[in-house]
């Protein structure tokens, strides 16, 4: 049993999604996170143990990212492997047997259609045990407000690539803080900096997906 769980951790760290996936090349033909999670559950492993294995795998790749020993592509592949496991754990989340670390409402702000940065953040944050509510791109403030109403206690993530949408991002932060002052907001995107984020009234700034995950981990630990 422990061996299966350890293998899940390794598959996530290495980004091995399933048997069919040829990535990484040195694990081609081996079972991946998908099959191993299924086997572990069948063998009686608790969902918490599997979730713990996932978190360990993501922490390992996150630490490598922090040390410059892994980069966004490796982080993304790890998150994909993690998501393959999460599909098996979904019934346990739905029944309340296991709980996510929290809810993260995420979207690219109005006027901006770029989704790659947002999608990366979504996958990495989900891979770190959060339930992600992805609102998509070109999201108007009202849609964020509706999502916050529907997901009390959520953290909100705003993404933008275009300098021209900084005004929309600031406006969205303002609208959210006006109606939900205690809602924690994290922002990210090329035209941003920690200073600009603070000036907008956001609570955090993430330069990359791992920084967003780390911010949320600190938030969860402090909550």
């Amino acid at each position: 049993m422990n061996e299966l769980v350890d293998k899940i951790t390794l598959c996530i760290e290495r980004g091995k999604v399933n048997l069919a996936s040829p990535y990484p090349k040195d694990m081609k033909g081996q079972e991946g996170a998908d099959e191993l999670a299924k086997q572990a559950l069948a063998a009686g492993a608790g969902p918490e143990a599997i979730l713990g294995a996932c978190n360990e795998g993501m922490q390992r790749i996150g630490a490598k990212f922090g040390r410059g020993e892994a980069f966004v592509p490796e982080l993304l592949m790890a998150a994909k492997a993690m998501n393959a496991v999460m599909a098996h754990l979904k019934p346990f989340f739905q029944s309340g047997t296991v709980k996510p670390k929290g809810k993260f409402v995420l979207g690219t702000v109005a006027g901006d259609l770029h989704d790659i940065g947002k999608n990366l953040v979504s996958m990495v944050v989900a891979g770190n045990g959060w339930e992600v509510v992805d609102l998509g791109v070109d999201v108007k403030p009202a849609k964020f407000l509706d999502a916050i109403r529907a997901n009390p206690g959520c953290v909100v993530g705003l993404s933008a690539l275009l300098t021209t949408t900084m005004g929309n991002m600031a406006g969205t932060v303002k609208d959210i803080k006006a109606q939900f002052p205690s809602t924690v907001i994290i922002v990210g995107g090329a035209p941003l900096s920690a200073e600009a984020a603070a000036q907008m009234g956001a609570d955090g700034y993430a330069h990359d997906p791992q920084a967003a995950a780390s911010f949320l981990s600190r938030f969860a630990a402090a909550a």
């Binding site: 040829p22 990535y23 966004v72 592509p73 993304l76 592949m77 994909k80 790659i116 999608n119």
Partner: peptide, 24 residues
């Protein structure tokens, strides 16, 4: 090319691991 695909990073990473178009 990156604008024509929903996820351009994964296949670049796959190719970077030596995986060809015939396999993925």
């Amino acid at each position: 090319t990156t604008k024509l695909m929903a996820d351009p990073i994964t296949p670049v990473c796959m190719a970077g691991a030596g995986i060809g178009a015939e396999d993925d």
